[in-house]
Design a binder for these strands. Structure first.
Lengths: 250, 250
DNA sequence: TTTTATTGTCTCATTTTGCGACAATAATAA
DNA sequence: TTATTATTGTCGCAAAATGAGACAATAAAA
């Protein structure tokens, strides 16, 4: 979990605003992108600690949790209207390690007394998001050096139970892939059949037969076929597709 | 949401134990049973109010949420080792209606001041459970007149967003039915193929072809076939089955 | 003994899936 | 200009899965 940098006034005036967020409740988001045939997620690195964590935050007193997560995504990615799905709430006592949070606070020269509420137990409502890798320049928050893409197969060690959170996100994404046809949220507006197949292969972790994949996807009737473009490869040019009702691009 | 009747000392000594539960966090459980070819759930009715709600409760300060839910299930059903699955966390601000909670408190002659924390916003982590209808005598809690089975198609009006909670539980159960072969948790140890098919039909809300269903289920290789028993019907006696590795019953 | 309702299983037609083949084609090499 | 090469779109066929009816077996009731 990572602190929101939005209400900075709160960090300075805790005493004046003792209950700006709901206590004991956090959210974490597993933000998936796709690049170079690999599935990636955004991971933040805290100042001076070598600690890595999922992007996340807290819920304001009069804010829907879904809105809090969208607020966090906007801060990290700059995007609105992201495909987002809640997949699990992690509520074990043991998931929270106060000594880790203490390290983070101390590394940022924040008073343990003022921020004592952060050392209490938290439950975390976890979401995954699917975004177009190319549209995003990840933004770190006030406590972090970086917010960067990592291959899901090669993650750095993550704090708390965040490794488990990522695994459950991946598992849910796999289960929802066929059911909700969610793959196209990871691609630009226009994409080739091969790119779409690569997304599916990256998520499922297995190779798919080209002809069968194409037949299955096209039979769903949710892709619009556009004019071919010559993409500079030494072969027949593929069609480009877009997702959903016909979308005119000029 | 319904109060746990377990730590009654707390209700009497709130001032002494001001933070017995995590604030703002509740759980609700949709407890499914199967009887008379219908899918049913447990619903509680509050004293003197005509208000109906799902069984639920709060999480103790050092208690895993999953354990809190199991504690609640034990209180309502007397059963341990129940099949249980978390399916969503409801976190909208608007879901909580303080005036409803106030009505419930007043009807039980509980001080609004002492129990003011119950009038604050709550998020709810929701679970569904599958149990064998015949094994259970539902138990109301301290604030309720009854805890009874209701046909999912004919529920009384429920407080808060509990109607939506039930619908999402049903939707998740349907999605998990084929994936997790969960149907048999609703039946006794020994059951006939017809009973199992009726469970599937009740959950999916549609009729299934008898031969196809039987072939599919048997091909999974997870049922043990036992000796036929003469069940008193005017026809060929069906086999009895049990679920899982071979279980000897005498 | 006959009738009736339900069960277990089978067959057959239809649909879906897995997998290879082949012509089309865009850049590159000759 | 022409041949080569890699990839694409599509087709065909075999195998597997599915939907739906048919029929003998059988336990109780008529």
């Amino acid at each position: 979990m990572v602190f929101s940098n939005y209400p900075t006034y709160f960090w300075k005036n805790y005493i004046m605003q003792p209950i700006e967020y709901l206590k004991h409740i956090a959210f974490d988001s597993v933000i998936f992108g796709f690049s170079g045939e690999k599935l990636k997620i955004l991971v933040m690195k805290y100042h001076n600690t070598g600690l890595y964590a999922l992007p996340g935050g807290f819920v304001r007193l009069e804010e829907n949790i879904n809105d809090a997560v969208r607020r966090g995504l906007k801060e990290r990615t700059g995007l609105d209207n992201i495909y987002l799905e809640q997949f699990y709430t992690f509520g074990d006592v043991a998931r929270f390690k106060p000594e880790v949070m203490q390290t983070i606070l101390e590394s940022n020269h924040l008073s343990l007394e003022k921020y004592h509420w952060l050392l209490d137990r938290f439950i975390s409502v976890a979401y995954y998001a699917l975004i177009n890798y190319k549209e995003v320049v990840p933004q770190p928050d006030a406590l972090s050096d970086s917010c960067d893409w990592y291959d899901v197969e090669q993650l750095p060690p993550l704090i708390f139970d965040h490794k488990e959170v990522v695994e459950k996100a991946l598992q849910t994404l796999r289960e929802n892939l066929e059911k909700k046809l969610v793959g196209m949220n990871l691609l630009p507006n226009l994409f080739t059949m091969k790119e779409l197949q690569q997304v599916y292969e990256a998520i499922l972790g297995e190779k798919l037969h080209r002809g069968t994949f194409q037949r299955k996807i096209l039979s769903l009737g949710i892709l619009n076929r556009h004019e071919k473009q010559f993409l500079g490869a030494a072969n027949k040019a593929p069609f480009l597709y877009s997702f959903g009702p016909i979308l005119e691009l000029k």
